[in-house]
Design a protein around this nucleic acid. Structure first.
Lengths: 238, 238
DNA sequence: CTGGAATAGTGATGCAGATCACGCAGCTAC
DNA sequence: GTAGCTGCGTGATCTGCATCACTATTCCAG
């Protein structure tokens, strides 16, 4: 049982951060044992497509390290990035649970490790361990709320600057200081930011200059410093 | 156990259409019996808010007749309608299952009958009848896909005419003829259509005239005739 | 170090659609 | 009747942002 595109299968997923909300944390010994039997750990290089929008679901991926970008595209080539998944996230869950085609494309943005669990084994696993099935339901519900947040952003936010402010805030929540500043690495290109907030690359460029001029942010190399959180919050209010 | 805003509690929900995908169809006798004990049937007048966005979930509503519009609003008052629910739909499910606040407001668009099931009873019910829990998971998954469709529409569809074409097609699927025409009643005001496709009332007015001129549709009173489905499909392609 | 690709900055232009403003039709109330 | 409502049609205007077209920068492979 090998993951597609697999390289260097490792013995175990040692780098997986143990987090409370992680699907596979604190499993009963039997469940953990079973999980160990059905998963296939692999390292995927940057650019790997874990799965494509529209494919029949083959299984789920549990991301251990690295980031993956989830996107959906129109026939004319327009793309929106709906989420940047990080370690701990489960990719492809909705497709597998409901046996509908994957609704997004998942692409590794940097090399990273992931556990692949084939659809059939995964569904059996859920059937045998109701405790895990419950967690899956919760995760599905979380996914739903994330999707709904996206709908609100796309449908209710009028201007690109508003969306940009929202995005900056969502980035900064993890690294916020008490004084309202935050430092973070920008890993997305302007193009990708544009796809995230539904505008063009040029507009993103202009937004950066505009926000710099307004002292809302500052750039030191690839490090972004958020200088004025409260003003951003005003701008982003939905 | 009374539903809020309840009027004229009926003995039973006789008008509920029995459909395959309906959550409460073909239940085991025991489950049906239990359901009967915990539900409260009522008739709600037009304009009733079954629940409001942001409220703590009190329970779910199963719509038996009438239509309800689900919407979400920004602080500045901009509103998007995310779905028009019809009989058989379960409203408030996500909030109840995940115990997060309702993500939408549900308002009756016409008088209608609904079964209200309080949160606690509903969750107990699910725990006692895993078969129903499975159906709930499926429904959640369907909700998720609907939300995702909405994201694609909002994020990838550029022009109002494209979205309008999509909307017309979604209306016409139910009443389509072989020759590509369809008759249907328009129950939404232009304002509501605008909120559904994320534009303004005026633009919707202009879209109607434009589409009439292009022979795509025709209006006979409140009856809308779709004359050229294939052109609409071209316009709507995503 | 060097050439080519990817990424980023910025000016000029144009246009779709929001906004504003107004008139009109239909409906209910009394 | 007529006053007041909600819903609809349409013209005039204004503007934010997509688009195009370049140049400048960074990055990295060989």
């Amino acid at each position: 049982m090998r993951a597609p595109y697999g390289l260097n299968i490792l013995d175990n997923c040692t780098t997986c951060p143990i987090r409370g909300e992680h699907l596979f944390c604190n499993l009963s010994p039997r469940a953990a044992q079973r999980l160990n039997e059905i998963k296939a750990t692999a390292i995927y290089p940057k650019g790997t497509m874990l799965f494509l929008e529209g494919q029949q679901p083959r299984g789920v991926f549990v991301l251990c390290s690295g980031k993956a970008k989830l996107s959906t595209s129109s026939r004319e080539g327009k793309t929106i990035i709906t989420k940047i998944s990080e370690s701990g996230d489960i990719l492809g869950l909705n497709g597998v649970v409901s046996n509908r085609q994957y609704e997004v494309t998942a692409e590794m943005m940097e090399p990273g490790q992931a556990n692949f669990i084939p659809r059939d084994s995964f569904l059996h696993f859920l059937r045998d361990f109701p405790e895990v099935a419950m967690r899956v339901a919760e995760q599905l519900s979380r996914n739903y709320y994330t999707a709904y947040e996206e709908i609100r952003t796309l449908g209710l936010t009028s201007s690109p600057s508003e969306k940009f402010a929202k995005l900056l805030l969502s980035w900064s929540t993890k690294s916020a200081q008490h004084d309202g500043t935050a430092n973070l690495k920008v890993t997305l290109t302007h193009e990708e930011i544009a796809e995230t907030i539904g505008t063009t690359r040029e507009t993103v460029s202009r937004l950066f200059s505009e926000f710099k001029k307004k002292q809302l942010l500052q750039l030191k190399g690839a490090t972004l410093v958020i200088r004025n959180r409260s003003t951003l919050e005003e701008m982003a209010q939905i």
